[in-house]
Amino acid sequence: MTQQSRLAIWKTYKIYIGGQFPRTESGRSYAIKNSAGKTIANACQSSRKDVRDAVSAARSAWGGWNNRSGFNRGQILYRIAEMLEGRKKQLKDELMAQGYTATVATREINLSIDRLIYYAGWCDKYQALFSSVNPVASAHYNFSVPESMGVVGMLAPTNAPLLGVISLMAPCIAGGNTCLILADQEKPLAAVSFAEVLHSADVPNGVVNILTGYQQELTDWISTHMDINAIVCFDQEKPDWQKIQENGAGHVKRMFRWNTQQLLRAGGQSPYLIMDLQEIKTTWHPIQTIAGSGGAY
């Protein structure tokens, strides 16, 4: 008998909600093709209920994540980068399966890792940089500090399966927000594998949630969801920006379109992206003359 070749074990690409890898609630899937048009995997076609579940996971994770020190968030972002470093080969294979050359895949992965490191560094610094002590005409200290917005819905760009996701996620969670990311519809494989990286990198459950599926179907549910505080997408993408704005206006959702060209090249990173997803809180505190207040102070 000739030696049999091993049976191939195909990976099931699932979604990432609240630190778990469920299949979509709807039970639907769609075919992921390579550049030659051959099916190479099936991905979950998430439904509105997966959006709902992801938002409630992100919402319950937000308090804890937001309360961590910036330093600790930085440690965790750094840890994601470490874990990603160890998974380079897998991600490279997945990118190449969808038409990347080895050089371009390696470049995208390296850029992604560097970007994580970049934002890891910013976690405990942007507050100091963007806070201010304001001059006021009364006996008060008056200071303004950035605080996280809450849950952010993010639509990943096409043609940057990994870098796109990380460019959205990193500034968002660096600033204490939690997020739900809808991966690139046609090339979601790297995003799903990246979820596994997150899972092994001390990222608390629910801080990042990654869905795959049809952007056309889910954009409305994300932009109308009242418990999503902000929405971010890329400016060269298909989703109907006017519709998103209309949907979000009723409940004052913060809406951002980031520059695709700037973001997806080397150096496409900035603390101002962290600041997009922050609210400025201003506090007035009365100045007390400590010496004059006596023992009662």
Partner: peptide, 8 residues
């Protein structure tokens, strides 16, 4: 028709 937020 859309998902709600506990804030309201």
């Amino acid at each position: 028709g859309n998902y709600q937020s506990p804030n309201y």
